[in-house]
Amino acid sequence: MLASLYRLLCARPVVLNSGLRRGMCSLHSMYMQKRSYAPPTERKKFYESVSISQGEGGYEINLDRRKLKTPQGKIFTVPSEPLAIAVATEWDSQRDIIRFFTMHLTTLCNTALDNPTQRNKENLIRASLKFLDTDTICYRVEEPPGLVELQTNEWDPVLKWAENRYDVTIGSSTSIMGPVIPDQTKEVFHRHLASYNSWSLIGIEFIVTQLKSLVLAMGLIDRFLTVQEAVLLSRLEEEYQIQRWGNVEWAHDYDLQELQARTAAGTLFVHLCSSSSTIKHKLLQD
Results as ranks from 00 to 15, higher is better:
residue 5 L to K: 04
residue 143 E to T: 13
residue 27 L to N: 03
residue 216 L to E: 02
residue 138 C to V: 08
residue 80 S to E: 00
residue 272 L to N: 10
residue 41 T to H: 05
residue 69 K to D: 02
residue 268 L to G: 06
residue 53 S to H: 07
residue 231 V to T: 02
residue 174 T to H: 09
residue 155 W to D: 01
residue 145 P to F: 02
residue 203 G to L: 12
residue 57 G to C: 09
residue 12 R to A: 13
residue 119 R to Q: 11
residue 258 E to W: 07
residue 153 N to L: 07
residue 212 K to M: 10
residue 247 N to W: 15
residue 255 D to K: 15
residue 147 L to Q: 05
residue 105 L to R: 14
residue 73 G to C: 05
residue 5 L to C: 07
residue 211 L to K: 08
residue 78 V to N: 06
residue 166 Y to A: 03
residue 195 S to R: 14
residue 37 Y to F: 13
residue 29 S to A: 05
residue 232 L to Y: 14
residue 27 L to Y: 11
residue 129 L to H: 02
residue 104 H to V: 03
residue 161 W to F: 07
residue 180 V to H: 07
residue 5 L to H: 11
residue 147 L to A: 06
residue 16 L to E: 03
residue 190 H to D: 02
residue 6 Y to H: 03
residue 152 T to P: 00
residue 174 T to R: 13
residue 127 A to Y: 00
residue 153 N to T: 00
residue 71 P to K: 15
residue 183 D to H: 07
residue 25 C to F: 04
residue 2 L to V: 10
residue 63 L to K: 02
residue 24 M to H: 15
residue 236 L to R: 14
residue 7 R to N: 03
residue 266 G to T: 13
residue 258 E to A: 14
residue 17 N to Q: 15
residue 204 I to F: 11
residue 26 S to I: 05
residue 80 S to F: 04
residue 163 E to I: 11
residue 101 F to K: 09
residue 112 A to I: 13
residue 83 L to E: 00
residue 247 N to P: 10
residue 82 P to C: 08
residue 198 S to C: 13
residue 185 T to N: 14
residue 255 D to G: 10
residue 5 L to A: 03
residue 223 R to C: 11
residue 185 T to H: 07
residue 126 R to F: 01
residue 9 L to R: 13
residue 12 R to Q: 04
residue 42 E to A: 04
residue 226 T to A: 02
residue 99 R to D: 10
residue 70 T to D: 03
residue 271 H to A: 12
residue 27 L to P: 01
residue 264 A to W: 03
residue 249 E to P: 12
residue 57 G to M: 09
residue 186 K to A: 06
residue 108 L to G: 15
residue 14 V to S: 07
residue 160 K to D: 01
residue 164 N to Q: 15
residue 280 K to S: 13
residue 84 A to E: 00
residue 158 V to N: 03
residue 215 V to Y: 05
residue 211 L to C: 09
